[in-house]
Amino acid sequence: MSTGLELKDVSISFGGLKAVTDLNFSIFPGELLGLIGPNGAGKTTVFNLITGVYTPTSGRISFNGDSVSSRKPEGITRMGIARTFQNIRLFSSLSVLDNVRAAMVMHLKHGILHSLTRGPAFLKEEGSVEDEAMALLDIFGLKDACHANAKSLNYGDQRRLEIVRALATRPKLLLLDEPAAGMNPSEKDDLMKLIRFIKERYNLAVLLVEHDMKVVMGICERIAVLEYGRKIAEGTPKEIQSHPKVIEAYLGAAAVVD
């Protein structure tokens, strides 16, 4: 039975500086976990650890029982973990559609040789890839922009395309790194609905890093709080909002209430 993602005593240090210390948490299948903390608390580092960009100095990360730590990023994505990037990293010379197609490469049955012979099976798969990509783009309202260059999109659309691209890898766990950054309140509301929608539709577990407390409190089922690379609290949104250590970390409750 799948057990989701589990971090056990994970630490990483960069040249003596401990960025993450003895971190423990898990995400169960289908769960939406929020990860919050002040700037520099190590949230993005946690993402990079889970996705194999960094290798933990000690500790163990496993996904559905298999160790993640020794794999390369592409191997981890193949296990069913996909991510978005806080500092948007779209394929800037490609169209919106091609950004999504590029993320579907690992599920292809056909390789180079088939692209040369261009047989019926190959063409059929090319068609189904495009259909799948368009369906995903449609969910996020990007279908009409599918032939536009990815970097010509506005900021909010680029963030949405990041999510579509991650979804195209058909993940079981989706890591969202500040997906609402730079969006206006109504866009944020839409984004919250969309995240809930894709979570149900694709039966995803989601790990959400976000600074906007309204978003976090609004959709997360459980929240873990990081400060200086350590977990200082974990619980339901209600528990977190009244947790003294969290209030202290954020220097007053004002930021939490909004």
Binding site: P73, E74, T77, R89, F91, D98, V105, L108
Partner: peptide, 25 residues
């Protein structure tokens, strides 16, 4: 090669290697 879906991996690697790796390429 380059225009097939498989081949979209080539420009993906060119544009952003880290993102490409994170997309399973």
């Amino acid at each position: 090669m380059v225009s097939s879906t498989y081949g979209r991996g080539f420009p993906a690697v060119r544009d952003d290697e880290i993102a490409a790796g994170s997309m399973g390429i």
